[in-house]
């Protein structure tokens, strides 16, 4: 049984310096699960094991990651390597991997007037109020990024992907 994009279960992952954030959508706009995994030792291996667990539990058709190697991408080498490993892992299980760039995210959320990461996160909370308890406070210049922001980054990738798919379908 094959499913169209809006019926597919989608897992979006955003690796961070301390672990990763993830969001699982079912039937495009149903939020199934979300969370942040903080891993201390042996982070790369443990991240892959945790992601393999998520793939097994939710059996997503599509895995969404950040597109690297494009203008505006400020990812470090470790995370870029991890993204490559996650791509290999997902493809080895015959899952579709889609990469979304930050520019695509900004473009998708510009319609809602959201430009900064915090505005995008607030915009996601408007769509999914259940994420409100996880919304981090506004980041001041001297503060480092809250780990919970990874949930909103992953959600923004997934929503940008849905936006792009909708455009493709409407253009056809």
């Amino acid at each position: 049984m094959s499913r169209t994009w809006h019926e597919a279960r989608v897992l979006a992952i955003d690796p961070t310096s301390k672990g990763f954030g993830f969001v699982v959508f079912a039937q495009s706009m149903h939020l199934l699960d979300w969370g942040v995994a903080t891993l201390e030792h042996n982070r790369e291996a443990r991240t892959l094991v945790r992601i393999n667990g998520l793939l097994g539990r939710y059996d997503p058709e599509v895995v969404i990651l950040e597109k690297t190697g494009v203008r505006g991408c400020r990812r470090g080498e470790r995370v870029m390597g991890l993204l490559t490993a996650i791509t290999s892992l997902a493809r080895s299980q015959h899952r579709n991997v889609r990469c979304v760039s930050r520019a695509q995210v900004r473009q998708a959320f510009s319609k809602r007037g959201a430009r900064t990461k915090h505005e995008i996160a607030a915009s996601i909370v408007e769509l999914f109020p259940e994420l409100f308890p996880r919304l981090p406070p506004y980041r001041k210049l001297w503060m480092s990024e809250d780990s919970r922001m990874a949930i909103f980054d992953a959600a923004s990738f997934a929503l940008a992907y849905f936006d792009a798919e909708m455009k493709t379908i409407s253009s056809h």
């Binding site: 790369e44 990651l65 950040e66 597109k67 690297t68 190697g69 080498e77 470790r78 870029m80 390597g81 991890l82 993204l83 490559t84 490993a85 791509t87 290999s88 991997v97 990469c99």
Partner: peptide
Amino acid sequence: HKGTCQGSQAGEFL
């Protein structure tokens, strides 16, 4: 990897 994530020396690192 074609059309997906790229990382300089990422594979070597992993």
